[in-house]
Design a protein around this nucleic acid. Structure first.
Lengths: 203, 203
DNA sequence: ACGTAACCACACCGGTCGGTATACTCGCAG
DNA sequence: CTGCGAGTATACCGACCGGTGTGGTTACGT
């Protein structure tokens, strides 16, 4: 593809596809309403009655489309991963090439967190379903793994040596920045992480 | 005091006291049961009936002692902060002096996470109550701020320049390691963070 | 003309939620 | 001896939980 994303050669068989099964109009409204509510208030705090009402439809339709609340939660996370990846790739297309390029991820993160003030939906979801066999657990693991792979590939393409180690360290900074910006209210956490990233990249 | 903890001179008026109001025996059992259940399963997933039953007492006693579930949650977090700080200080007493000393925090974190497999109780709690006026929010903010101050003081005492900036970067790595070790299942995240910390400390 | 997928309105289910009320027993300090 | 704080046992409250069932209305493809 283009230089705006790590290549498949580095990433291995792109673990991204899964073309998102189509939804009926009411199903779409339900997923939209559920996503907003789950993210803002948490999963267990939101009942299926509220979701159906917000979507302007009924519980019957919700269960016809998604089967269970748990599956709806998994769908919510799967879609959110797709949205974040699109946002990230779009933001990275502006970033200049060179060894400092991976640090641009933190600029994208900063912009993202300006709108997404409840932090990482996956970390939040894991707080509620971790340690169970909830179908969301797999989506959470997948997202974190994807992000690590993306960062490692970015570092490798930037020509920085030791891509595996450096990519992992960027991942640590990325997660730390998200958590501190949100739970601790440290608004400049992404900027701080970006500065640290440049040092880790030895630029 | 001793060299096992940042001094008050660096930390400012130690924000640690609050001697923990005493509890009756039944109250103690309730808080103990609630702590274990909240941490393992999440706050909203645990009902007051289960807490009372696990503690071998009744809901009546729970509400006599704590007034509400929300207050019990806040107490749970307040106590947990105290336990973590004691664990941290005890672990740091073994760490050698010198510019690499702050990195020992990640050894302590690794040991802590070997037993605490649901990650950071404060991050998890924030996922459930963030964005509300829940009394737990203040405890969460306080814990994160305490940890930042502790790290900055550690860095300063180790004689590393730019303590404020470096302490913040260690904080990012610390939070990142906790989140990745838990939600992403990256078991060596604390070790990776420790290595990155040494580089940030320019040792 | 017929089947069917999508949707809506609404009623219903057992169970659990946080929280309150009543009534009783015990040990202890005045 | 009395009063009180602590605790136990149990019943109750309205609200909400996730999930199901019934019946009826459109619109569309064959």
């Amino acid at each position: 593809m283009t230089s705006t994303a790590p290549s498949d050669a580095v990433l291995g068989p792109a673990p991204d596809p899964a073309p998102e099964e189509a939804l009926t109009p009411a199903g779409e409204r339900l997923l939209e309403a559920a996503s907003a509510l789950f993210y803002r208030r948490g999963i267990r705090a939101v009942g299926v009655d509220l979701i159906a009402e917000t979507a302007g439809t009924t519980k019957k339709t919700l269960y016809d489309r998604f089967g269970s609340k748990d599956e709806l939660v998994a769908r919510y996370l799967r879609r959110r991963a797709r949205v974040w990846r699109a946002f990230l790739r779009a933001g990275m297309s502006d970033a200049p090439l060179g060894p400092g390029r991976p640090a641009a991820v933190f600029d994208v993160l900063e912009a993202w967190l300006r709108e997404q003030d409840r932090g990482c939906a996956f970390v939040n979801a894991y707080a509620e379903v971790g340690g169970t066999d909830h179908p969301a657990v797999a989506e959470i693991r997948a997202e974190k793994q994807w992000m690590l792979r993306y960062l490692v590939a970015l570092v490798a393409e930037a020509g920085v040596p030791d891509a595996d180690r450096v990519g992992t360290e960027l991942h640590l900074l990325y997660e730390g920045a998200t958590v501190l910006a949100t739970a601790a209210g440290v608004v400049d956490a992404p900027a701080r992480a970006r500065a640290a990233a440049l040092r880790v990249l030895a630029v």
